[in-house]
Design a protein around this nucleic acid. Structure first.
Lengths: 215, 215
DNA sequence: GCAAATTAATGATTTATTCAAG
DNA sequence: CTTGAATAAATCATTAATTTGC
């Protein structure tokens, strides 16, 4: 059970790491030097540049320039999901039914269904539930604080006050009454993304640059 | 906007939703022995029980009166990733190099490399970075509060104080100097999971139960 | 020496916040 | 202003260290 404790002398440093090939969304950006951050932001949505993930040794600099100039205007399906009425409707139904954080398979199925009504990906479903839950909660909290502050001011006539609101604004508990199960996992979302990403040409990305830490 | 403002007569309710077939990880508690990180294999990570996602509301409780008792205490051989020294070493190297939140492709590559040293999935890599970053930050904050409170008490002799610590304990900014880009995405993690999940027998899951809201 | 019992680390999830498109 | 997308913080849970009594 002891970890493989072998000397810190990292043997894998001799591995043929160097650069790997992989294909994906790296539309262009063959050059992309590490210009400060001026236009560096060029790294539009999907342009990868390892360097942009490497913290610039210098300093913070949060130059918040207007990013994407023209470079890679969004990925193929670039724009964000724009749900249709039917989709929202179905999602809300599921939500009202009690669904909160669907797992991968459920997302898969839901997405399949919703696809009938418009373009949609798994991650959209995932996010929708995530956001909807959070915002319902916010709303509830606001309400209970705004006018439910003093218990005698509440208006019990409102029909929307369901078991939920009665339950109070206690946070957790909603959908994990007991412990917590290992259940959900980031949906296959990526598959789709990857799919249409793969169409792009391959590109070599230096994941494991050879030069030592030299910094 | 204008959410479900369309009549409750949901047209999609006539769809052949009902139950869909899907297979997955329901194996119940194979006793998950704590094998060392060698032949973990299985690792079916998800136990499904729609019921646990459906709030036991006033709805038609068919038999959900104790959803979790012995039901899904599964969490199958859900062995969690147990990194080897080599893996940790490599990850730390990347971290020191400045990598913070690798994107899907990077994760893919990293995972591929680390697989040489032991079982690992994309999500493990993703999580590792997430956690490592967060905990380094915590540590730093604790330090700066504990003894670094007064800037003149720091001990510049320690070699480990690299640019990182010098940068200070500013929270955000670490790896997103500019705005925030759509860059990372939950890795293909799930693919693997799904893969070996599919091996399991199929199981019918009622994603869209037919009975109306009943409320 | 060795397991049960306890503690420390850290992997995995969920929740809260933030950002920005429309 | 609404809300999709993304990240960070908080939390939970499991495994390895370790302590302890035999």
């Amino acid at each position: 059970m002891v970890h493989n404790q072998f000397p810190r002398g990292l043997l894998w440093e001799h591995e043929p790491l160097s650069s790997l090939t992989l294909g994906c969304c790296n539309r262009l950006r063959p050059l992309a030097p590490k210009l400060p951050h001026t236009a560096t932001a060029a790294a539009a949505t999907t342009a990868f540049d390892l360097k942009s993930y490497i913290r610039p040794e210098s300093g913070p600099r949060k130059s918040d320039h207007k990013p994407e100039t023209a470079q890679v205007e969004t990925l193929p399906g670039g724009t964000r999901w724009n749900p249709t009425q039917e989709q929202i409707g179905l999602l809300e139904m599921l939500y009202r039914r009690g669904m909160r954080t669907p797992n991968a398979q459920q997302i898969e199925q839901i997405t399949a269904q919703l696809e009938k009504y418009g373009k949609i990906e798994g991650k959209n479903v995932f996010y929708w539930f995530q956001n909807h839950k959070a915002r319902e909660r916010q709303k509830q909290k606001r309400n209970s604080l705004g006018l439910g502050h003093c218990p005698r001011t509440y208006t019990p006539t409102i029909a929307t006050i369901t078991a939920d609101s009665i339950r109070g604004h206690e946070e957790r508990e909603e959908d994990s009454p007991k412990k917590r199960k290992c259940r959900t996992w980031m949906p296959e979302c990526l598959e789709e993304d990857k799919r249409h990403c793969k169409e792009e040409g391959d590109k070599t990305l230096e994941l494991f640059p050879l030069h030592p830490e030299g910094r």
